[in-house]
Computed example of a mutant assay.
Amino acid sequence: MLYNLLYPLSGHWTVLNLFKYITFRTIGAILTALILSFIVGPWMIRALGRLQTNGQPIRTDGPQRHLLEKGGTPTMGGALMLLAITISTLLWANLANPFIHMVLLTTLGFGAIGFWDDYNKVTKRNTKGAPASVRFLLQSMLAIGVALYLKLSSPGVFGALSVPFFKELNLDLAWFFLPFAILVIVGSSNAVNLTDGLDGLAIGPTILTAASFMFITYLTGHAKFANYLGISYIPGAGELTIFCGALVGAALGFLWFNTYPAQVFMGDVGSLSLGAALGTIAMATRHEIVLAVIGGIFVLETFSVIIQVLSFKLVGKRVFRMAPIHHHFELKGWAEPKIIVRFWIVSIILALIGLSTLKIR
């Protein structure tokens, strides 16, 4: 909005030329989202606490200390991030850019599904929430919508899978592009959801992944940099840097309240929407495999659940003491802060590896 309103006036006031630069507007988006989170956060947490008398339902089959320590903590704190991301993006991004519309609408769409799920959990006092099959159907429809938009708007750009470390290796997905979008976007959404089991555990890797994609979106949308690095140049994708910045700022602000011991949980309204945002950005920049590397913690958590379920169904034994895997370490006696920080350290390493793929080709 500020770009659309103020940059056209730069011919009269030279200082307004600043709004031309994505880097300047990204910093503005980060700070705006962060400040909004600090201002609105305390009020929202109090409001959620009043509306949710008993807070988020806690799994009875999980670590027993959760029932004692986390009982009564309100959920749906992800709504704070959605508010900060939306306002910050609308203020600082070029609203004529179609990528901004696509990512913002997808994020809010998944947020609405998450809100519905959280609402069912809180009102019905169970941990299952809305029907999983219906959630998956709605998520898949949104993911297919993203894929169709990308494919139809730029048929020569989207529809192939870029492989890291190789300049010219692009695998044509053909008809598989639609289910591939479901795999990336819905998979990313639910992977973040599975990771959100300890205070600050999911939001740390989310910040690192979004920050990494700030660089990736900027480079992908810059013809000279993209050509130099041997990555796909996607006109207009650079504007997504502002969205990534807004996500980083909102997530940092939320972490202030979600760090151990948490004052509020993000809930599905937060985890599903943030994961979908990351997946959609990866699709828009054609860096889906790099997302799996940088977001390796989310992949690990997801595969731990898949392995646990398959092992129990096939041979009647569990590989882990409990899945997702962060609960396995809890039951081994690791303190919650130790698990969180160590997972963050692994996320930093994975982010560095993922970013290195931009140059090593």
Results as ranks from 00 to 15, higher is better:
43 W>P: 02
203 I>S: 15
298 F>T: 11
260 Y>N: 13
178 L>G: 10
312 F>E: 08
271 S>H: 08
120 N>L: 13
59 R>I: 06
146 V>L: 07
260 Y>R: 13
62 G>Q: 09
204 G>V: 15
38 F>A: 10
100 I>T: 13
138 L>S: 12
54 N>Q: 12
184 V>W: 07
356 S>W: 15
214 M>H: 03
313 K>E: 07
172 D>H: 12
183 L>Q: 03
187 G>V: 08
328 H>K: 11
20 K>C: 00
115 F>L: 15
199 D>L: 08
327 H>W: 03
272 L>G: 00
59 R>V: 08
247 L>A: 15
123 T>N: 12
357 T>M: 04
140 S>C: 14
12 H>I: 11
223 A>F: 07
185 I>Y: 08
26 T>G: 03
1 M>K: 08
359 K>V: 14
64 Q>N: 08
355 L>Y: 10
259 T>S: 15
21 Y>W: 11
178 L>S: 06
127 T>R: 02
273 S>A: 15
195 T>S: 14
268 D>W: 12
308 Q>F: 04
106 T>D: 01
340 I>M: 08
65 R>H: 15
303 F>Y: 14
78 G>K: 13
350 L>K: 06
284 A>I: 04
295 G>L: 10
264 V>W: 09
175 W>D: 06
8 P>H: 06
42 P>H: 08
175 W>G: 00
256 W>L: 11
208 L>T: 09
144 I>N: 04
92 W>R: 03
339 I>R: 06
113 I>C: 06
152 L>V: 12
196 D>E: 10
184 V>Q: 09
345 I>N: 00
52 Q>W: 12
171 L>Y: 14
75 T>Q: 10
278 L>H: 03
112 A>R: 01
170 N>G: 01
295 G>K: 03
26 T>P: 01
103 V>A: 15
333 G>R: 04
145 G>E: 02
181 A>K: 02
338 K>G: 03
133 S>K: 14
187 G>Y: 00
254 F>W: 06
147 A>K: 07
140 S>W: 03
11 G>F: 10
195 T>K: 01
279 G>Y: 05
81 M>P: 00
166 F>R: 13
1 M>W: 10
326 H>E: 09
171 L>K: 05
180 F>I: 04
29 A>I: 05
93 A>T: 08
92 W>V: 04
132 A>W: 12
361 R>Q: 12
264 V>Q: 07
7 Y>K: 06
38 F>C: 11
82 L>V: 10
266 M>N: 07
14 T>M: 08
11 G>H: 07
183 L>M: 15
68 L>E: 15
199 D>H: 09
216 I>V: 15
160 A>K: 13
8 P>A: 11
4 N>T: 11
284 A>H: 03
136 F>M: 15
127 T>L: 01
312 F>M: 12
275 G>A: 07
127 T>P: 02
124 K>Q: 14
224 K>W: 07
200 G>F: 13
234 I>D: 10
276 A>S: 11
210 A>R: 04
280 T>Q: 04
218 Y>T: 05
72 G>I: 01
231 I>F: 07
236 G>Y: 08
336 E>T: 13
151 K>F: 14
284 A>G: 06
157 V>G: 05
241 T>H: 01
